[in-house]
Simulated scan of single mutants.
Amino acid sequence: MVDEARDLGPGGHYCLAFDDRAEFRRQATTFLREGVEHGDRVLYVADATDAELTEVAAELGSAARPGAVEVASARSMYGADEVVDPAVQVRTYAEATAEALAAGFRGLRAAAEITVLVRSAAQRDAFARYEQRIDRFMTAHPFSAVCAYDRGALGASAVAELACVHPAASAGATPFRFFAREGVDAALGGEVDRTGRELLARTLDRAELDLRGGELVLDATELGFLDHRGLLLLDELGRREEVVVALRGAPGVVRRMAGLLQLAQVRVDTAA
């Protein structure tokens, strides 16, 4: 895990779990200022007052070309109790990215404090699905984002549901990461033990992966540990969807454990 939303580059996707709104503003403006310096159009979204939004716009716009900086209230954009439509939300950012490119910018960066959108279980379910969809979009398009959630308002378990579907997240926000990577169906990093099995099961249910090819390939080069419960979960997925779950680059201990379990639907290819 990392503690700062820095040097993400085009396609970067970071989950900031914060305990202090001042910390969100600091990291968000640093991330967006870096984007301005690199020629991106930037967007700051927060559950904030008009005065704060005006301050941020002035701070970011002082060294920016015209049209480079946009600010918006999360409530004005989404409402306070809405359940987002994942497809519509991805389309919105895809269109905004295309507009930024057409206007001569290198791409689009967004820093969004969106706690207001994930307070209920239904909101989190929809938003976690959206986070996985937009993560796949980012692997092939010049859009990067910091998605920020108030840990005090939501609680650790709710934050973990959202943090785990980012390539990078604040330290302690999630035990593992399940995210998009070019050339494979997804990547699995971090550690999955007894306490993480339920979260992984929920994440896989929300993944909306294309399972028609007979094989689900997961890049496991960033995986530190996957216990027998996690392997059994992947085997259950394989049986249910009639695919082989291939873990590429997994630690040797995972391969040995899979061999002992004699899993029919999981293949482990260890790192060289």
Rank of each mutant, 00 (worst) to 15 (best):
V36D: 07
G35Q: 06
H38R: 15
G104K: 06
L32T: 09
R124D: 05
P86G: 05
F127C: 02
G104E: 04
L43R: 15
A94D: 12
V116E: 08
M77F: 00
A111H: 05
E131R: 08
L53I: 11
T49S: 15
Y130I: 01
V71H: 09
A51C: 00
G67F: 03
V71C: 12
R124K: 06
E70D: 15
A110Q: 07
D50L: 08
P66I: 12
Y78V: 01
E131I: 01
V116C: 13
T54V: 06
V71Q: 10
A58V: 04
S120V: 07
A103L: 05
A68T: 13
D50F: 03
A46K: 07
A128S: 15
V88C: 00
A68V: 08
A74N: 08
E55Y: 08
G39Q: 10
S120F: 01
A110C: 13
A46S: 15
V36N: 07
A51I: 09
G39K: 10
E99T: 12
G35C: 06
Q123S: 08
R75W: 03
D85E: 09
R65V: 14
G61L: 09
L117D: 01
A72R: 14
G61A: 12
A57I: 06
D125R: 14
E59W: 05
V56E: 05
Q89K: 04
A102G: 07
V84Y: 01
R91K: 13
S73F: 01
A122D: 14
V71R: 10
Q89M: 10
S120N: 07
